[in-house]
């Protein structure tokens, strides 16, 4: 009780410092509500003139992220003023693999100039609500994916029980399909599905009295593994 949190939304970070935005500062984060990805931003005007006519564009990116509507910034944004904007995002845009995979390059225009910045999209906002793999399919897929396509990570310093871990992850669309206990050790079998249709299978070993968990990942597209590992870290440490 008290340990279960809803979808994890990272705190906003400064994406465009005022010094690079001719007085415009943008901080932001990403979240997911009701199956929809949102880019949440705060625009702050640190210049001496009002700002108007805001617009946004994304560069091609790994997951085809694209604004689902035009950017709404209540304006004009007066000097020393600050305003929040929530931009729905779809995944119908052009795809080009980025390094790192979740890198997103953004252009923002206003009446002053055009500004560019990059940000990282936390992978769990791309995890779909229907990512719970059928048990039979999970078993077959786990067997089918060769051992060389498995990567292991240690997630250190996790002070949750297996059930708490499971429910924290489930709130972020990482689903537990089966839980087994072998000689006191809890084993969680989990799945997630990314917006581009890539499935990832996970096994999480939780040993009694050990705050370090062992995460094993299997996927037919292993380039997502490192991002998925980071997502587990993020969720289990927040």
């Amino acid at each position: 009780i008290g340990n279960v949190t809803p979808f994890y939304t990272p705190a906003k970070q400064v994406w465009l410092p005022a010094a690079r935005g001719k007085g415009l500062e943008i901080s932001g984060t990403f979240t997911r509500r009701n199956g929809q990805i949102y880019m949440e931003m705060t625009f702050s005007n640190k210049a001496m003139q009002a700002m108007t006519s805001f617009a946004i564009q994304f560069n091609k990116n790994s997951f085809g992220l694209s604004p689902a509507q035009s950017l709404q910034v209540q304006g004009p944004l007066q000097p020393n003023g600050s305003v929040d904007s929530s931009l729905p995002i779809n995944t119908k845009g052009p795809v080009q693999k980025m390094e790192p995979l979740t890198n997103l390059q953004v252009a923002i225009k206003n009446n002053v100039d055009v500004f560019y910045f990059s940000c990282l999209v936390p992978l769990h906002v791309l995890c779909m609500e229907d990512g719970m793999m059928d048990k039979r399919v999970f078993l077959a897929t786990w067997k089918d994916i060769p051992a060389q396509n498995e990567v292991q990570y240690t997630i250190e310093n996790v002070n949750y029980t297996a059930d708490q871990v499971s429910s924290k992850l489930q709130n972020n669309n990482i689903f537990t399909i089966a839980k087994r206990n072998v000689e006191g050790q809890d084993m969680l079998y989990q799945s997630l599905k990314l917006t581009n249709g890539i499935w990832v299978l996970a096994e999480l070993k939780i040993q009694p009295g050990n705050i370090n968990l062992i995460l094993s990942l299997k996927s037919r597209a292993m380039e997502v593994a490192s991002g998925v590992h980071q997502t587990f870290e993020l969720i289990l440490h927040n």
Partner: peptide
Amino acid sequence: DGDVDLDDSFSRLAESRTHP
């Protein structure tokens, strides 16, 4: 019963991963 088979399969998977 297919569900029982599936439950067994997960138990066997967990066993095999503990004692490879």
